[in-house]
């Protein structure tokens, strides 16, 4: 007997609606690529200002991610494992940078690191002016992107069975050894995904960074500056190069995520 596999109207509806959304994401990017002459893209890659800005963007985003991870991972573990008063409030606070306008986040960060603030004064005492400095840029990037890491790591730790940690404890391992040999390796896929998301989000940040440091210029600020000063045709090649670099990094880092033990 021949069995026919018909697609239901429901499935068809899902495909059409999903396809439209995919087009909505792909179309502007494809349009940008196709309307940029290859010659302009090559010339842009030789532009010292563009290269410096991309290097600065990558380095500050990476520094922001790695330094923030030192606090974000322990906090995520705490949120996944412990019940404490105001836990929901803490979880809400973590998501705040995602929901507030990024220009407002930039104002908040600027207030925190300006010379009048305690952290700003402490940095000045060490000879470091955070405003208009790569360190300030990294702080702004970390502020808006750290929720991605905390939430991913929390999900990762929550997925590790408590009983597995208890088993390790009963086998004589200290809580610290349990964390480093059981919890962290088993949550690592989520954590690495969170690190990548935080890095990618920090790299693409404009609103908060432009308020903290217009100079030195990260690439999103440079794109904005070229667009404002010279127009779309000057900003587009920089945008194309930056998108390509971002995608390359994104793919490379994704390849680092280990496969799950089947």
């Amino acid at each position: 007997m021949r069995i026919s596999h018909r697609i239901s109207y429901f499935q068809l509806g899902l495909v059409v609606l999903g396809g439209l959304l995919l087009l909505f994401v792909v179309a502007p990017l494809a349009g940008m690529f196709f309307s940029t002459p290859l010659k302009d893209v090559f010339e842009t890659t030789k532009d010292e200002v563009v290269r410096d800005s991309i290097e600065l963007t990558l380095l500050t985003a990476m520094a922001a991610t790695l330094v923030a991870a030192l606090g974000a991972i322990p906090l995520a573990y705490l949120l996944a494992r412990k019940d404490f008063i105001l836990k929901r409030l803490v979880a809400g606070i973590i998501d705040l940078p995602v929901v507030i306008p990024h220009s407002a986040a930039g104002i908040a960060v600027l207030g925190m690191i300006s010379r009048n603030s305690i952290p700003g004064q402490a940095a000045s005492a060490l000879g470091l002016d955070l405003v208009g400095n790569p360190a300030g840029i990294a702080i702004a990037m970390a502020f808006v992107s750290v929720p991605f890491l905390i939430n991913a790591a929390r999900d990762g730790f929550s997925a590790v069975p408590v009983r597995m940690e208890q088993t390790a404890l009963s086998l004589g391992a200290s809580p610290l050894r349990v964390f480093f040999t059981i919890s962290l390796p088993l949550a690592w896929r989520h954590i690495l995904s969170g690190l990548i998301m935080m890095f990618a989000r920090g790299m693409s940040e404009f609103g908060a960074v432009v308020i903290v440091a217009y100079h030195p210029m990260i690439t999103p600020v440079l794109i904005f500056e070229r667009f404002g000063a010279f127009g779309l045709s000057y900003a587009r090649p920089v945008a194309v190069v930056f998108v390509v670099v971002s995608l390359l990094f994104f793919i490379l880092l994704r390849l680092l995520v280990p496969r799950k033990h089947a």
Partner: peptide
């Protein structure tokens, strides 16, 4: 005394082998 210092061996019903 915390669990890691009791010297008692515990076997859970679902084994809890470390998958990695």
């Amino acid at each position: 005394t915390p669990a890691n210092k009791r010297g008692f061996g515990l076997l859970f019903q679902d084994n809890q082998l470390f998958p990695h």
